[in-house]
Design a binder for these strands. Sequence first.
DNA 1: TTTTATACAATATGTTTGTATTGAATCCGC
DNA 2: GCGGATTCAATACAAACATATTGTATAAAA
Lengths: 219, 219
Amino acid sequence: MPRQVDHDERRREIAEAVWRIAAARGLEAVRMREVAAEAGVSIGRVQHYFESKDDLVAFAATRLRSRIEERIRRHAEDVPEPRSPLLVLRALLTGLLPLDADGRETALVGLAVFHRALSDRELAKLYQRGRARLVAEVMSHLAAAAAAGEIPERIDPRLETYALLAATDGIATDLLHAHYAPETARALLDRQIDGLRNAPPPVRGAGAPAPPGVAPMAP
Amino acid sequence: MPRQVDHDERRREIAEAVWRIAAARGLEAVRMREVAAEAGVSIGRVQHYFESKDDLVAFAATRLRSRIEERIRRHAEDVPEPRSPLLVLRALLTGLLPLDADGRETALVGLAVFHRALSDRELAKLYQRGRARLVAEVMSHLAAAAAAGEIPERIDPRLETYALLAATDGIATDLLHAHYAPETARALLDRQIDGLRNAPPPVRGAGAPAPPGVAPMAP
DNA sequence: TTTTATACAATATGTTTGTATTGAATCCGC
DNA sequence: GCGGATTCAATACAAACATATTGTATAAAA
């Protein structure tokens, strides 16, 4: 057997460098040379652990979901007792906002991946899957909140989930550009969640499932 | 005098090609050669009308604002009488959504420009200016709606503006990825606007002006 | 000890890129 | 019809890039 090296660990180290570059200057700025330099290794090493640049970027992108879900979990756990479904939901959504350095990096890489997914079918599939899980989780919290009487029972869970996620996404976007302060972001999120108490009943046809996909960018 | 050629018109033609490529495959896919091919002209011509690629991309990006504002104007004019401030506001926000081919192209280029602005100071300034105008316009409609009694008078106009724009942005983003149907998007927007009727009073400190910019990506 | 697969580093290769250069065609005032 | 500026096509070129190739060190296995 060869020299004892933790293969996965090495790959993760290099992927970290990709993250740092992607967060700082976008996925397009990811160069093999720079990744090597950022990771403090030779370009030969990077090549050894990744067949191609695409392979490297794909691996780094794959880690996005686990990173996001870890952030969500961490935030949810920090909710003090008694934990109402709505409070947990708020923590979850807050976890998606770039309010700290790690969150900012995650959001920046997320944006880059999202953007690239518009013209990369493989990445798009990955992205859709992550999004579906997020939608499902938010919806379940919403249902729990409705059951607990925190919000009206006769809401449209899917529509409200979309509304919450859209708002969170928009706020995150604004934070990346520093359009306003973190406190404003929190206030906006609270305002949105508060709006659930006056949520209207389901609208026929509005909460319909995803349509037969409009082709995003050209292939 | 030289050959009679409408200089600006030529530049605009070439910029159109940039738009088409950027919408289809992102700003990063914009190559001098491809722009020339897409516009059906020689590389030499592209070079003649634009000093550099940066110059070309910057010019194309500059047209974003006018294009967005034109869309907004068009949508606002289509509102049937009697035009209440809230109806006009809804039309304005709807105009920002990628609900038709032109809107989709605008949104895609907008996203590309926005993304690049995160690491391009010049572009960032341009983007900020456009955003400021948008915020001002939405806020004025909100004030008008409050004055007309369509929504509570004691709302926080700036915060509500941010909420509306964030929601619109998030919905637009979801539409680009075809996460749901256009009707759902409209329902979401209506839901958001409806929420204004139950808007809370201003929160101390929340609607504060933009902070001393957190540095976006590294320079 | 010899073998063999791994783990790299160093360098070569060929493509893609923006841009510089060169020169020809066009049109206007004269 | 001549001169000179404008327009723009063709091509050349250097830099940047991903990747292929080659060589060497290491350490477990035989």
